[in-house]
């Protein structure tokens, strides 16, 4: 079972490394969106420091939506997905492997990049580290929840927009607690409560989202 998990993880990572543009589009989207806000709002550091958590989280949310469409569609088009559904290994493990690979490709670069961009917003070192931790816990949850939407809209016309419509409402709690943690830390309230909630969301989505995703894949690939 673990073999299958490792195999699918390695396969998706190799595929992504052969086609590097996928990694960079998401990352550049995130960087550009985050850099647009100071241009639109004005360069006052006081305001920027205040809006930074929200801006980073909304940008991360949108960037992860952007990448979702490709999560299953390539495998669906060339028939690999059907083979996975027929495989003796549980679909739960395969989906988990695919989502982890997807997060490593699109989510992790974004998390690594965030502190660097945070400096542009004049965030303090503690706020930066909290931002890093929330993104590290939040973006995998976004990928897991988003996978449900990606599986449901597989092969539909206008699938990309549809994914956002279905998934964004479900992602709002992640956004609230992620941005809330950084805000609480900036204002000196302590970020622990928000971080615990975020960790709880992550644990629950690791447990349940792959189940819902595999059910959705079975429906879509029928």
């Amino acid at each position: 079972m673990f073999e299958a998990f490792r195999a699918i993880l390695m396969r998706d990572l190799t595929l992504a490394l052969r086609r590097r543009s996928d990694i960079f589009t998401t990352l550049f989207f995130f960087v550009i969106v985050v850099s647009l806000f100071p241009l639109g709002i004005g360069p006052e550091l006081e305001i920027l420091r205040m809006i930074a958590p929200g801006v980073f989280w909304v940008a991360a949310l949108l960037a992860s939506m952007l990448a979702l469409e490709r999560l299953f569609s390539i495998d669906f088009d060339d028939g690999a997905l059907e083979q996975m559904l027929l495989a003796p290994q549980p679909m739960f493990i395969l989906v988990l492997g695919k989502v982890l690979a997807h997060w490593l490709i699109t989510g992790l670069p974004l998390v690594v990049m965030a502190p660097l961009l945070g400096v542009q917003y004049d965030l303090s070192t503690t706020a930066l580290s909290v931002l890093l931790v929330t993104l590290l816990m939040g973006t995998p949850a976004l990928s897991l929840i988003g996978a449900i939407g990606a599986a449901l809209t597989l092969g539909l016309r206008g699938g990309g927009i549809m994914v956002s419509l279905l998934v964004l409402p479900l992602c709002i709690p992640v956004l609230i607690f992620g941005a809330g943690a950084v805000e609480a830390s900036v204002s000196g309230l302590g970020e622990a409560g928000h971080l615990y909630m975020l960790a709880a969301i992550l644990v629950l989505s690791v447990l349940f989202a792959p189940l819902a995703t595999s059910a959705a894949l079975r429906i879509s690939a029928e």
């Binding site: 449900i148 449901l152 539909l156 419509l165 279905l166 819902a212 959705a216 429906i219 879509s220 029928e222």
Partner: peptide
């Protein structure tokens, strides 16, 4: 409503919609 509208095959629309409702 949007998901149901986007899927032409009623059987798939029904089951996909049901799953979405349960997630929500």
């Amino acid at each position: 409503i949007a998901l149901q509208g986007a899927i032409d095959d009623t059987r798939r629309a029904d089951r996909a919609g049901a799953l979405l409702v349960l997630v929500g």
